[in-house]
Design a protein around this nucleic acid. Structure first.
Lengths: 181, 181
DNA sequence: TTCTCCATGTAATACGTTACATGATTGT
DNA sequence: ACAATCATGTAACGTATTACATGGAGAA
């Protein structure tokens, strides 16, 4: 089942946003467990408008200058968001090309693996730093929004996961470097 | 880019397999970072046959009884597998409905979150046990195949990840239970 | 003025799942 | 005899990415 509308609805509860904002927010803050492309977001927004799940918020439209269209959730939107929240989750769809290569490796492609481990470490380190700084900025306003503490909890997990990935790839690289494998 | 053929090629290097075998192997051993459905595997196998990346291995066909068709990689298949192995990885496609809900939670859906945390813990625990037993069985034949040590390394990461997820969700549940959040 | 980024959108294409059809084999 | 599982396959459908089109705003 498509979940685009629920992410949108979830974000709009907190703050009025344009399609562009939504896409950016998802692909930065939420990037370690989600992403969306414009090709999904814009058509979905118009669909949701028709269904009355969101509406344009003209209040802030001018403040921001541009022809930007900001949206808010309607009561109906909040309702279907809550229904989704309460429902049992589908099985995750996880696909990692790096992990796939690590799994399928053998002696013939040892040097490729070393390269991919390096990239893997780098990417996880970058994300780790991103989440740490995001968590820091949230902590400063922990009282401001009641949902901040939930996001912080979530980030805590992301940080732990990135750390595990970094440690593992570092160790693995060292083992390969010392010819232990 | 579709990666189905590379998984297939990777598995076939090690052992002759049928489409059914391949699908089972992916959806059990590799389930924490990959999956494929019959609708992808069978058409892909026929496509690969046409392109000369794999061929039927009639040797073992009878041994197994059934009308099972087992495949092996050809030289050309090995070649394109190696090319893929050496290439830089695409960004991962990660989508977890559970994590999405944890991120989008607020006080209004606290009880939903508790339920999802319970499920999350349960699923991660089950996977953890699965990988532990898989790792155990591989360790017994660690010398048999030169690729076993790479798979073990990979499983090591999977095990660490599952553990982190279990610990995090357990802690989170306790905090919620004690009304700390 | 030209470049870059903001901003919205769509059409073509690629990818993936589901549900169904079919039939053999094994265990009870 | 019956159910379960093995085994292969396809058509319909749903979902997601890509590439492109369009144009305004701000900076160099």
């Amino acid at each position: 089942m498509k979940k685009t509308r629920y992410v949108i609805l979830g974000l709009l509860r907190d703050e009025n946003m344009s399609g562009y904002d939504i896409r950016n927010c998802i692909n930065t803050r939420m990037s370690f467990f989600w992403k969306e492309s414009y090709g999904q977001i814009y058509p979905e927004l118009n669909e949701m408008l028709k269904e009355g799940l969101i509406k344009e918020s003209n209040e802030k439209a001018q403040v921001d200058g541009r022809g930007k269209i900001k949206y808010t959730t309607t009561d109906k939107g909040k309702e279907i968001f809550c229904e989704w929240m309460a429902a049992t989750n589908e099985k995750d769809t996880v696909r990692s090309e790096a992990l796939l290569k690590f799994f399928l490796a053998d002696d013939a492609n040892k040097s490729d693996i070393e390269k991919h481990l390096k990239d893997f470490y780098q990417q996880n380190k970058e994300r780790l730093d991103l989440y740490l700084s995001f968590a820091d900025s949230l902590k400063q306003f922990a009282e401001a929004h009641n949902n901040h503490k939930y996001i912080l909890k979530m980030l805590e997990l992301g940080i732990k996961q990135q750390k595990v990935n970094c440690e593992w790839s570092k160790e693995y690289m060292e083992e390969l470097g010392r010819g232990l494998l």
